[in-house]
Measured scan of single mutants.
Amino acid sequence: TEEVEKIVRELQKRGVSQEEIQRILKRNGIDPRDVEHVVRRLR
Rank of each mutant, 00 (worst) to 15 (best):
R14K: 09
D31I: 02
L25Q: 00
T1V: 12
G15C: 14
E2C: 15
Q18L: 15
Q22A: 12
R40D: 14
E36A: 11
R33M: 08
E19P: 06
V4W: 06
I21A: 04
G29S: 03
E20C: 15
Q18R: 12
Q12N: 08
R43C: 15
G15S: 03
R41K: 12
G15K: 06
R40Q: 12
R9Q: 04
V8T: 02
N28E: 12
G15L: 04
K26M: 14
V8S: 01
I30V: 12
Q22N: 06
V35W: 12
E20S: 07
I21K: 00
R9H: 03
R9P: 00
L42Q: 05
V8W: 10
R40T: 10
T1E: 09
D31W: 02
Q18F: 15
N28D: 08
V38R: 01
R23S: 09
V8N: 00
R23W: 09
P32L: 05
D34K: 10
I7K: 05
K13H: 07
K13T: 07
G29L: 03
K6S: 07
K13E: 06
R40H: 11
K13R: 12
K13Q: 10
V39R: 06
Q18G: 09
P32T: 03
L11K: 00
E36D: 07
I21T: 01
I24G: 00
E19I: 09
E36T: 03
Q22W: 14
R40E: 13
H37Q: 13
I21G: 00
K26Q: 11
D31V: 02
V4K: 01
S17F: 03
R40K: 09
V16M: 12
V35S: 02
R14Y: 09
V16S: 04
R43Y: 14
R40I: 11
I7F: 10
L25G: 00
R33S: 08
V39H: 03
D34E: 12
L25C: 14
K6N: 06
D34T: 15
S17C: 13
L42Y: 03
G15Q: 04
Q18H: 11
E19F: 11
V35C: 13
L11I: 01
V16K: 09
K6G: 05
E36K: 04
V16Y: 13
V38M: 06
H37I: 14
P32S: 05
E3N: 11
I24R: 06
R41P: 02
I21Y: 04
G29K: 03
V38G: 01
L25Y: 00
N28R: 14
V39C: 15
Q18V: 15
V4T: 04
R41W: 05
L25K: 00
E10I: 12
V16F: 12
R40M: 03
E10D: 08
E5I: 10
Q12I: 15
Q18W: 15
E20W: 12
R23A: 10
N28K: 14
L25E: 00
R33I: 09
L25S: 00
E2Y: 12
V35Q: 01
E2G: 09
R27F: 09
R27E: 08
G15V: 01
E20A: 09
N28L: 14
L11N: 00
G29D: 03
D34Y: 13
E10Y: 13
Q12D: 04
I24Q: 06
V8K: 01
E2H: 11
E3P: 05
V4N: 01
H37K: 13
L42C: 14
Q22P: 03
R43H: 13
R33Y: 05
E36R: 06
R43G: 13
H37L: 13
V4C: 14
R27N: 06
V4H: 02
E10A: 13
E5G: 03
E2A: 12
V16W: 13
R43V: 12
D31S: 07
K26E: 10
G29P: 02
V38K: 01
V39P: 01
V38E: 01
H37G: 09
E2Q: 10
E20V: 08
V35K: 01
R43W: 14
R27H: 07
I30N: 02
K6R: 12
G29N: 05
R23T: 09
L42E: 03
I7R: 07
R27D: 06
S17W: 03
Q18C: 15
D31E: 04
V8P: 00
K26N: 07
V8M: 06
R40V: 07
V8D: 00
R41L: 12
V38Y: 03
H37F: 11
V39F: 14
T1H: 11
R33H: 09
R41E: 07
R9I: 07
H37D: 15
L25W: 00
Q22T: 12
I30F: 14
E3C: 15
E3M: 11
E3W: 13
K13I: 08
I21R: 00
I21D: 00
K6H: 08
R40N: 14
I21L: 07
K26H: 10
L42V: 09
H37M: 14
I30Q: 02
E36C: 12
R43M: 15
G29H: 03
R23L: 11
R40S: 09
E19D: 11
L42H: 05
G15R: 05
I24S: 02
N28G: 08
R23M: 10
R43T: 12
E19T: 09
D34L: 15
I30T: 04
R23Q: 10
R41C: 15
I24C: 13
G15W: 04
T1G: 07
G29T: 02
I30C: 13
V35A: 05
R33Q: 08
R14Q: 07
E10H: 10
D31C: 04
G29W: 03
E3S: 10
R40F: 01
E36S: 04
E19N: 07
E2T: 08
R23H: 08
E20L: 07
L42T: 05
E5S: 05
G15N: 06
L42S: 05
P32K: 03
R40Y: 01
I7G: 00
G15P: 02
D31G: 02
R14E: 06
S17L: 05
S17T: 11
R23N: 10
S17K: 06
G15H: 07
T1Q: 09
K26D: 04
Q18I: 15
